[in-house]
Structures are given as structure tokens and as C-alpha cells.
Amino acid sequence: MSKELYQKIFFLSPFFLLMLLVIFPLFYSIYISFFKGFLESFCGLENYFYLFQDPRFISTIKVTLTFTIITVTSQTLIGLLLAFVLLQPEVKNKSFWQTIFLLPLVIPPIVAGVMFKILYHPSFGPFSYLSMIKISPPLWLEDPNLAIISVSLINNWMWTPFTFLIFYTGMRAIPHEIIESANLDGASGLDILTKIIFPYIKTLILIAILFRSIDNLIAFDEIMGSTAGGPAFATTTFAIYIYKLAFKSWDLGYASAASVILFIITTTIAIILIKLTYFRR
């Protein structure tokens, strides 16, 4: 064997290790989903059959989609806004702001969930000061309609720094001369924004949406820490439901079936977004 091949094998062999660690369990997961309970009795596609009739399953899809759309949209928009604002020349000491804004990224999500739970409390949290001025504090985690927003807020708190960072670094890479010459040519701020900056960051936006969507479809830690599925079932996302099925009811077959479906959904979205992002240029 040539030395070239040796080197190639050496450098690329971990790839196969990785695939083994990941692909095999995935197929095993599909295998598990054909059984009832903890690999107890074979039942073929019965789990999937029940799953599609399960009202809880349907509602978790709704909740998950709502959650994902709210969070991804707001994180992208706010991240853009923050990045844009921070880049303005009027802001001194940019690195100070950057550091502070990135803080939430280092807090474990479960801790963030519990932190917000305490924060949201209408009587023992800071919102109870509203009652001193005769406004009744919002029932963040009690009102089922509000609960989704409250939980989305936690997710936003944690992950907007991420989108912000992508846009900030990306926008900073835009060469100054282009903007300056446009300014000199008399282009308005809005024009610069749409005609120059936007094309540059279009890809970034898609990337941000890609990452955040995939991550939020399976968001678990912060929801578990704050509402554990919410008032009634209002914040029971896919992830929470699968967790409960698998490790509270120990109905691993049924839970595996649900996770296989989840995997199909996330991979589809990922492929669509990747195609848009990486194969456009």
C-alpha cells in the first residue's frame, strides 16, 4: 500500500468510528420500536399505528411547532437587531457588550429553566412588585396560553447570543470600503441595509435558522426545569413526551417509535435547509 493510502486511512479512520457510534444505535432504535415495552413482545408497526391515533402525540406536535416557530423567528430577528446595533460606530467598548451578551451561553440549560421558574413566580418573584402598583402579575407558567411564550422566552434568553454572534461576526466581515463608498455615493441607510448587507447575511440567516430549528425541535432541558410539560399539557413538547414515555412509563418501544418519527422530521428539515444554504452558491 502506498504511503498516501496509509496516511489517508490514518486520518480518515475516525470517520468510521463515528458512523458506527451513531448509525448503529439509530437502526437499533428502529428495531426497538417494533416491540412493546422494554423489548417485551414483538408487535410490528402497532406502535406507530397507536402513535398516530394518540391525541397526546398530536398535541405535542402542535406545541413543538409553535415553540420552534416562535423561538427561531424571534431569536433570528433579535440577533440581527443586536448585531446591527452593536456594529454602529456610536457604540464604544464593543467587547464589553459582546461579553455580557454571550453570558447565557455558558449556563446549563436546566439551570436556566429553574432560574426562570423562580423568576416567573407571581408572588415570590420580582413580578410581584407589579401588584404594588395595582397590576396583577402575569401568570407566566399557569396560563396555558402564556406558558408557551414563557418557555420560549427562556429559550430565547439562552440562545439569542448564538444567533447574535453569527450575525455579528458575519456582518463584521463585510468590507468597510463597500459601505463607505455607498455612503459617499449618497445611498440611504435603508438602501445600504437591503442592497449591500442583506445579500451578505442571507446565508447566515439561513444557517442560524437551520441550527436553531434543529436544536429547538428537540429542546428539553429548560422546559423540563421550568414547567415539566406545563400547565396541563400546554408545554409538553415532543421531547418531553418521549422522555416521559421512555423513562417514566418505561414504554421504550412506543417511545422509540415516536423518536424515529422525530428523527425523520428533523432530518428532513435539516436536508432542506442545508440544500438551501450550502448548495446555492
Binding site: V22, L26, I32, L39, A246, A255, S259, T266, A270
Partner: peptide, 17 residues
């Protein structure tokens, strides 16, 4: 990238077994 998209939630059941 796809390997990254095998999130803990989906993989935890087979890993556990």
C-alpha cells in the same frame, strides 16, 4: 453535520439499552 443532528433525545433510548 448530520452526525450532529442525532440529538440526545433520539439516541438516548438505544444507548440506554
Amino acid at each position: 453535520i448530520l452526525a450532529r443532528m442525532f440529538p440526545p433525545l433520539i439516541m438516548v433510548i438505544p444507548y440506554y439499552i
